[in-house]
Computed example of a mutant assay.
Amino acid sequence: MRHALRLSVSFLIGFTLSEYFHIAKGEWIVLTILFVLQPSYSETRRRLFQRTVGTLAGVIIGVLIIQLFSFSGQIVLMLASSYLFLIWMKRRYSISVIYVTIFVLCAFNIIANKGVDVMAPRLIDTIIGAIISFVVVRFLWPEWQYKKLPNLLSEAILKNTTYFKAILEEYKKPTTDDLEYRIARREAHRADNALVTAWQNMQLDPQKQQQLKKVAFKLTYLNHALLSYVSALGAHRNQNQQEKLSHQVFEIHILKALEESHHWLITQSNNKIENIEDTLEKISNQLLNTNKEITQIQYILLFNIAEVTLQILEQAKLFKLTSVATKPLK
């Protein structure tokens, strides 16, 4: 909803400026806004840089290259540029902008022999559209990355819990059809990737909006470690039956602790967090003593899962991460 409103306001501003000042090829301002303006500030800033640099490079390269091609050569160049634009669109936007700029230059040169003439308006319109996009996303209902962290962390814990539960089911009743396990694994990795992306995008937010930069890094690292230990536990699910875990009490308690951790991240109940931490500490101590007697890799992984979960909760509580949570618009 926020993005839709920002996009509509940006279109209105761009169109008004184009009509009021009679800007040449003013429709390119609106087109630039459409491609540059993204749902978040960090994504818009990255796309703005790519669009501006790509357009500038496309203008310079296009003007130099077009002098070397005849009419037929320009048609071939135009077709090749349109194809390469589509190829690079999702891979690297800045390169795709270079090709589409060359395409526009060739098209106008073929139609009216004015390809070089429209390059100046294109560059100017691109800069105007980029500035409008930047100003709107910066000041109109900005959505900073640190506000997403609580929801992303709770989602990551939830997906890790589901993944862990699916692994335990595989241990209990091994099946050839492990579709649920693979789905849970994919969702857990997606949630982990979303947390990593939020931390990376936070580097592009204004300095004063990077309030949880350090805790975001720590939580990203810890969640990735948790997912790695859970995945390693799942990798051993197809071992011989006699080599599998002989006790179910540890797994059940860890699963319950993970579920309660997710619930705490949502409800922010201070009393409950103490109970979860006590449970995890007891499990860790019991597993540590067990590891001295039994060297099964599963026990070691369960110990690591319990320890990392405890560290995640300590970080979330220490920095009061949930106090900055904001509910997303629906």
Rank of each mutant, 00 (worst) to 15 (best):
T326L: 08
V9I: 07
C106S: 12
Q296H: 07
V63T: 07
I254C: 00
G115Q: 06
G234R: 00
N304A: 10
A191Q: 02
Y20G: 02
T16A: 10
R138C: 11
T267D: 05
V308M: 05
V30T: 12
H22K: 06
V36M: 13
L152A: 15
E187A: 05
S228M: 14
I276T: 03
R6Y: 06
S72D: 11
R92N: 05
T101R: 04
F164V: 00
L265Q: 09
I266V: 13
T279I: 06
Y229G: 10
H189V: 09
L233P: 01
I157T: 12
I124T: 05
L204I: 03
A191C: 08
I66S: 04
A130K: 01
F85M: 12
E187Q: 10
K320C: 13
P121Q: 02
I132T: 01
R190V: 14
A4P: 08
I276Y: 06
H189N: 14
Q74L: 13
Q268Y: 11
E155R: 12
V116R: 03
S81V: 09
E274Y: 10
T279Q: 12
E259P: 00
M1V: 14
Q315F: 15
L56C: 12
P328T: 12
Q209N: 12
A4Y: 15
V97N: 03
V137F: 11
L179Y: 05
Y20F: 08
T162F: 09
K317A: 06
I29H: 01
T267M: 09
E169N: 11
Q67E: 08
Q50N: 12
